[in-house]
Design a protein around this nucleic acid. Structure first.
Lengths: 222, 222
DNA sequence: TCAAAAACCGAGTGAGTACTCGGTCTAATT
DNA sequence: AATTAGACCGAGTACTCACTCGGTTTTTGA
């Protein structure tokens, strides 16, 4: 492993565990055995290290999902949805550092002023949302998922749930694994065709929900 | 408003917007008009300021929920669930700074070494989870919610969803408000009695899911 | 009215901090 | 063997930061 790679690996660990601001170059130097001068020989700034890592994360996450989808055959769209959720949870466990970084605030703060960062984060979250939606759409085609669902919105809601569970897990609030069974059951109840109650009003199938690359304007839920 | 309160208000804003580490006492001093010496006259450290704010947050959140529950009458448990979700989203919008702080990593990092912080966060999240569960239990009593649900686990899943949506909103990834209608519909599908499909296996009604005050040991979802 | 207490001030202070720079070492190329 | 380019070093540099301290002003209450 080259010294540059060693630096990147250690930085990934530190950024994940302590955050960007609280990671010092001195510490990174001590941990890797590389002199501070060497670090700045390979990277023009601490932010540059972070951006390199984020690029790797984006490529890694997208590749993992592509390989997974390519290497699987799903009985139904509903089956795909359940497996994708499971795969996401596994991925978050396997690449803990990546998901720790994604669940810190720094990337999103940086995204406000750094358009490359904004695009990388957008690509990552669109990858997630697209795959969730793909499962829903194909489930609607094969009849395993009810037709009167706004697939993008439901994809985002399900992703919120799963990602929210990972967030709780990361912050040591509770063990998301213990909820897995109920998560899958709830998911089925939302998606399975036989309507348990007459729908309220809105339906439709896609679009008018903005894609991930960052909303403008203010916050405020509802 | 006393100078101490002014300092706390400004610090709340800064910690929410920029994070704890990236907020400097110099900036807090400039923003409030209080000298740095004055700030350290009222608080023994920057962390002390943060802990005071967290205490206020805990009390505020719990009070808001108690007042809300006390001042409302719900037709059914299901109705209560929907209203509580709605109230949570409104609360997050109204007390934006609090929820920005709660969705940063600093509190949870601090919780690892500071037991008071750990307890405050635990109290806040138990408040949320308890109210979600309360709605489910009362819905099971009045028949508006199916009986074969593990109320604690489903409460945590629903809370994950709502909280996950707030997280996306805070990080400018998408407008959670646009998902509100579908959120409520999905929630009903999970909870409404008429079983749309035979249950898979586990049921039961409560407990064996650890309460919020922080899990020990490692992470790993599933 | 006056003394004690509390609030307030802001110029230090010392411990970091990211990043630089002049130089050495290594390895490939000629 | 000589040249050269890139990897590597670590002492320095300019700066920022949380926090202190000696002092002044304001408030309190007897």
């Amino acid at each position: 492993m080259s010294k540059k790679e060693t630096i990147l690996n250690a930085a990934t660990r530190l950024f994940a565990e302590k955050g960007f601001k609280e990671t010092t170059v001195a510490e990174l130097s001590k941990m890797t055995g590389a002199a501070e001068g060497t670090i700045f020989h390979h990277f023009k700034s601490k932010e540059d290290i972070f951006m390199t890592i984020l690029q790797t994360m984006k490529e890694g996450i997208i590749r993992e999902f592509e390989e997974y989808i390519a290497g699987q055959t799903f009985k139904t769209g509903l089956d795909m949805m359940e497996n994708v959720i499971s795969f996401y949870l596994d991925l978050a466990a396997k690449n803990e550092d990546w998901f720790l970084i994604l669940h810190r605030h720094y990337p999103y703060d940086l995204a406000k002023s750094n358009s490359v960062c904004r695009e990388l984060l957008g690509a990552i979250y669109n990858c997630f949302a697209d795959i969730f939606e793909l499962a829903l759409v194909s489930g609607q085609k094969d009849g395993s998922i009810r037709k009167n669902l706004h697939t993008r919105k439901i994809a985002l809601i399900l992703f919120s749930t799963v990602n929210g569970m990972v967030w709780f897990d990361i912050n040591s609030l509770y063990d998301a694994g213990a909820l897995y069974q109920e998560l899958i059951e709830s998911c089925r109840k939302i998606l399975i065709p036989l309507p348990p109650a007459p729908p309220l009003k809105g339906e439709g199938s896609s679009d008018d929900v903005s894609p991930f690359p960052f909303r403008e304007g203010g916050r405020g839920v509802r």
